[in-house]
Amino acid sequence: MTKKSRTVQRRTVLGGLVGAGMAFAFGSVDHVSAQSPPRLEPRSIAARQRFFGASNVDSGTGGIRADRVVITWLGCTTYAMAMNGSVFVFDAWIPRGTVSGYVPTDPDEVADLRPDAIFIGHGHFDHAADAGRIAEASGATVYGSAEHCAAVRKSVDTRAVRFIELGDAATPVGDRRDVEAGNVSVTAIRHLHSTPTAPEQGPEGSPPFFPTPNTSDIAAHPPELDDATSLARHVFDAEGGSILYQFRIPGFSVLWHDTAGPLGERAPQVLTQLHELPPTDVHLGAIQGFGQFTNGLRDPREYAEAVAARLFVPGHHDNFVPGISARGETYEAPLRAELARLDSPPELRFMSDPTDYLNPGLLTFSV
């Protein structure tokens, strides 16, 4: 695959990447947003300041600086993102059920962000179980397949929630939809959920990966009854199709997917589509999946190669179901080994649970 150019037009913008612990020296609230947003309630302002950093949020209105993109990890593949003054939630599940309090927030606080939209990657419980609760409480528009939207409709007052359907479960892999969400251009591409495939033989193959389970978090964060009951209600939720999204504003783009399927084997045309998208600055990609048991982290590596972003941030690698999943730290060495196989590997911003949850300083960018 011919690599995308990473020349200056791919941006000097990531020079604005801010690491954890670094301070901002911002000016007046003239920077907050080109629009004049309505004044939010105090609890929403407080939530936005916590999720996106107090320096990026107007303390009087809750408006967010349009010259910053801020992304906050909320567990598994759920993120909150502020972009061009809009607030989006990617997936909608705060990990809990086998544990409680492992991620230091809850669906009610996510709803307090007053997100403009929720984008669902697929419908399994660990990705969409809180979508209805957050959407109904916040008024966010829900984007996803017809099946994703139908599942959410069952749990909400449909008069309070708007839905944008992006095909259905039968929509062909590779289908592309382009929409506008607020002041952000969004491309949605149908791709594949992770699945085990026959081990790839020869020097190109990747070794199987079996992360060591960590059960100590159950003892430290025992499950509460309400959380366990919520998990039980959603544990068999259907996939409903898997969708990958790219979000673009002038000078910056973010690509996110909450699963990584065997595209090289079963849908190489999608790898070509990813390669031909407008350049991506930040790639948020799932690395934990069923394919790891036969082909290690090969499938996430193929996504990273096709997207060719400057910065890769792994997700779906945390201990969200202790005893089945593991601490993210177990994934770092095999992931680095996979990315090192690329001719032009992305910079890796590895985030570990639970210390990097709700840490906006890790993913704050100047635009």
Results as ranks from 00 to 15, higher is better:
214 N>C: 12
207 P>S: 15
230 S>E: 07
210 F>M: 13
240 G>K: 02
227 D>Q: 07
238 A>V: 09
235 V>G: 01
221 H>E: 01
224 E>H: 06
221 H>I: 01
253 S>C: 11
221 H>N: 13
228 A>C: 00
218 I>P: 02
215 T>N: 01
221 H>T: 07
239 E>C: 13
222 P>G: 06
252 F>V: 07
219 A>K: 10
229 T>I: 11
252 F>M: 11
239 E>N: 15
238 A>L: 11
248 R>C: 04
229 T>V: 09
238 A>Y: 14
213 P>T: 08
239 E>Q: 09
235 V>H: 01
250 P>C: 10
224 E>D: 05
254 V>D: 02
247 F>C: 08
229 T>W: 08
206 S>V: 08
222 P>E: 00
208 P>R: 15
218 I>N: 02
212 T>M: 14
236 F>I: 05
239 E>D: 15
221 H>S: 02
228 A>N: 00
213 P>D: 11
235 V>C: 00
214 N>F: 05
234 H>G: 01
230 S>W: 14
237 D>R: 12
254 V>H: 01
216 S>G: 07
232 A>Q: 06
249 I>Q: 14
226 D>Q: 05
219 A>G: 09
224 E>I: 04
211 P>F: 05
211 P>E: 04
229 T>A: 12
219 A>M: 04
223 P>I: 03
210 F>C: 07
230 S>K: 11
221 H>W: 07
226 D>M: 07
213 P>V: 07
239 E>A: 09
222 P>H: 04
212 T>A: 15
212 T>D: 06
240 G>F: 02
208 P>E: 12
220 A>G: 00
205 G>Q: 15
246 Q>P: 02
241 G>A: 06
